[in-house]
Nucleic acid binder design. Structure first.
Lengths: 147, 147
DNA sequence: GTGATTTTGTTATATAGTATAACTTTATCG
DNA sequence: CGATAAAGTTATACTATATAACAAAATCAC
């Protein structure tokens, strides 16, 4: 016998929000990982660079909290970006405890190519959804789940 | 100073599918974990019990594949359910390699209370979404992402 | 029918993501 | 001033996930 696939009853999994969220997130993150493998960027790295690029001078703890990353785990992320010459810590003069985050010139250039890559990645899923309106609708629904 | 929260520019993260998926999935799974902490069930355990309950006699590999779990990692999950007396492996007579999965009588009873708990959990998020229609819409959009 | 290949379940192991506690330095509060 | 809190860091543990290798049993090719 060949090609006879067992038919499976998924019960409430067919309508379960959490189950579909998990599967969909896995699919999107897998595409993300492939898209950014050349650039060596994980999802967290991408979001951190993006936030720093648009909010230069934020404290580590502020960026970490904004992204839902614990500050203990955030240290290694910044270490990595700094080691690659993309971001840098600058000791604040007013409060010498804080490290203000900035992109380097190289980091700014990198962010640009990163964004074109991201646009390709995002477009693939916007197309799967059926267009921008569907995407906006999805994002709005997802936002409600976090309220 | 108190209560002055730094305003942060999230840039494209505001519309990014992957970012919202991750945050939403985290929120839903956190509620799931709290809801099922008494019963000692992780999301994977729940889905496995559900599939076995509705498809008795499936092979381990079939259940694992249906849920996107690698069969190597699936072993420990079944070990756990079996140790708790909820599920059992039955050696197939036709093919002595395969382990057919079944719920025990105790497992059937457990599945019932599990489902009422799940319904409470799910309802919380259906309410956040604004009702069944919004939920169906969300699930349909999520399904498109996996195509 | 016999040898080669594939399938199933398993073990061991590595990696990544995440969570917690403790510590240092600096700032703030009473 | 002394106590307390905040920011960053280190160490560590735990979970989830991925890969490779293996034994037993079935299937395939000839």
């Amino acid at each position: 016998m060949s090609g006879d696939r067992t038919i499976i009853n998924y019960s409430v999994l067919d309508e379960a929000i959490g189950y579909h969220l998990r599967r969909a997130q896995l699919a999107v993150f897998q595409d993300f990982t492939e898209t950014f493998s050349e650039l060596g960027l994980r999802p967290a790295d991408f979001s951190v660079l993006l936030i720093i690029a648009h909010n230069p001078g934020l404290k580590q703890s502020e960026v970490a909290e904004a992204l839902g990353i614990q500050r203990a785990n955030f240290v290694a992320i910044i270490d990595g970006l700094q080691a690659r010459g993309l971001a840098e810590r600058r000791k604040s003069e007013e409060d010498r405890r804080v490290q203000a985050l900035h992109l380097t010139a190289q980091g700014e250039a990198f962010a640009k190519t990163m964004m074109t890559r991201w646009a390709e990645h995002e477009k693939r899923f916007v197309d799967k959804l059926g267009g921008e309106d569907a995407r906006d609708q999805l994002v709005q629904l997802l936002a409600r789940l976090m309220g």
